[in-house]
């Protein structure tokens, strides 16, 4: 895993090697690798001279610090009550049908991961979802199909 070692070292050079550097380093790993593996966490612990269990604790605390392999595009559909009442269930079914994956799964080609998330703060424009860092709101079946198709075409 020389690449991970290099990546972690680079991130530590950039953000520092203190405790408060831990979060930006973990975020940096997610940006590059889309998830933080056990090897990466051990490397971070070594680089920052801290306990690996504490790195693991931090990584598992934050939903957006993925600790399992994810696809190139991570779709996070809001599961909280407002989006649910505005038709989130149908949106979910549409995405599942389009990508042939269930919630929590990653497509065979490793391009998409489908997850549910807690409130994104877009209740007034629900249902809402995130694809990586981009927000999509006021979704309906047609709109979500168009968005996903767009991503599939541009892979």
């Amino acid at each position: 895993m020389p690449e991970i070692k290099e990546l972690v070292k680079g991130l530590a050079d950039k953000h520092g090697r203190n405790r408060e550097s831990l979060l930006p380093i973990l975020q940096g790993i997610v940006t590059e690798e889309r998830f933080i593996s056990d090897v990466a966490m051990a490397e971070v612990a070594k680089e920052l001279d801290m306990s690996a269990a504490l790195v693991y604790g931090t990584a598992t605390f934050y939903s957006f610090l993925d600790t399992e392999p994810r696809g190139k595009y991570v779709i996070r559909l809001c599961k909280t009550i407002t989006c649910d009442m505005k038709g989130k269930k149908q949106i979910l079914k549409t995405i599942e049908d389009l990508l042939k994956i269930k919630v929590g799964e990653t497509s065979k080609d490793k391009n998409f991961t489908l997850l549910e998330t807690n409130c994104l703060g877009w209740c007034h424009k629900g249902p809402a979802m995130l694809i990586n860092d981009q927000v999509f709101t006021e979704l309906d079946e047609d709109k979500v199909t168009e968005i996903i198709d767009d991503y599939i075409r541009n892979i």
Partner: peptide, 16 residues
Amino acid sequence: LGVAYKGEHMKISTFF
């Protein structure tokens, strides 16, 4: 030993 996960899933855990 550290604290892993949060809320109702919070647990005392070793590395991974």
